[in-house]
């Protein structure tokens, strides 16, 4: 095909409306946020000028709370995505062998995903309320001590991660189940003829063939988890101490409590860069893996 031929032009013509919309709804806010991050814009001074260069980034980098929240966000994202992937894969594989009432199982599994994170957080906050919540009531009825789920600095982080995994796993299940259903049957039949056991088939056929779908699921979830805001906002407000202060919450505090939209935008920009790097690195790794003989 000629490089700038008729098909090329038609292709761009069809893509142009969509690309224009994307530019307006995504490109403009993104560019505006980047400009805001290098500006003097606050809620008390709602103008972009004078531009301040990298000052806002320097302020953040000098703040130990920023680094704490960054490290915590990385820990949190890795933990939750790992949990969601392992549990999600297990459920997806189990669902594959289900013959009867499969749609019912899928419907049940989809329920947490269909709920808004705010509702999920509010429900769990009530369930985990240390004095009146059902979780401690159950523990007590089993003769176990009550736990301070959201008020203990160590436990709060794990509690929040568990609630997140509970909600987000269903998304991973759906993606992986779709990927599993699309795998070619003949490969398995050939492996069975060759005497390959179930574990062998899982680790050496299913997992490698599922890799592209799994990668997409992991990347999407990593992005979601890095942006997590709703759960810590409702469950803990970042506390106790800074035990659950993720980066998005830190950015919110800067922008709306500190009235510094510029510093909030700079913090959000860091988040964007990290997500971009992770996404590119992940797909590069995937690409390299798929080329390996």
């Amino acid at each position: 095909m000629e490089r700038f031929g008729r098909e090329w032009r038609i292709g761009w013509a069809f893509a142009a409306p969509g690309l224009s919309m994307l530019t307006i709804v995504m490109g403009f806010p993104l560019v505006y946020a980047i400009i805001m991050a290098v500006s003097s814009m606050t809620l008390l001074h709602p103008q972009l000028t004078p531009l301040t260069g990298l000052d806002n980034f320097a302020v953040l980098l000098a703040d130990p709370l920023f680094w704490d929240s960054l490290v915590l966000t990385i820990r949190y994202s890795v933990l939750t995505v790992t949990g969601e992937f392992v549990i999600g894969l297990g459920i997806a594989v189990m669902l594959q062998s289900v013959v009867r009432a499969k749609p019912l199982y899928f419907a049940i599994i989809t329920i947490p995903m269909a709920m808004s994170p705010i509702s999920v957080a509010l429900i769990w906050r009530m369930l985990l309320q240390p004095n009146l919540g059902i979780a401690n009531h159950l523990l007590e009825s089993m003769g176990l001590p009550r736990l301070d789920w959201l008020g203990h600095p160590d436990l709060a982080f794990w509690t929040m991660a568990t609630v997140d995994i509970w909600q987000q796993t269903s998304f991973v299940v759906l993606i992986l189940a779709a990927g599993l259903a699309a795998l070619p049957r003949d490969v398995y039949e050939a492996a069975e003829v060759d005497g390959a056991g179930a574990l062998y088939r899982f680790f050496f056929i299913t997992l490698p063939m599922l890799r592209p779908v799994a990668a997409i699921a992991i990347v999407i979830q990593l992005i979601n988890e890095f942006r997590t805001y709703d759960l810590p906002y409702v469950l803990t407000r970042g506390g106790p101490g800074t035990a659950t202060e993720v980066l998005s919450l830190f950015a919110y505090r800067r922008a709306f409590l500190g009235l510094s939209l510029n510093e909030g935008a700079a913090a959000a920009f860091f988040l964007l860069v990290i997500i971009l790097i992770l996404t590119i690195a992940f797909f590069a790794l995937l690409e390299r893996g798929s080329r390996r003989p």
């Binding site: 600095p153 506390g239 101490g241 505090r253 500190g258 009235l259």
Partner: peptide, 23 residues
């Protein structure tokens, strides 16, 4: 003052950190 809400956040963080023994 102008930054009362932000100060509440700063103070609240320090109080919470002290209560959890982190500072």
């Amino acid at each position: 003052f102008t930054y009362s809400a932000q100060y509440q956040n700063i103070l609240g963080t320090q109080l919470s950190l002290a209560a959890t023994g982190e500072t």
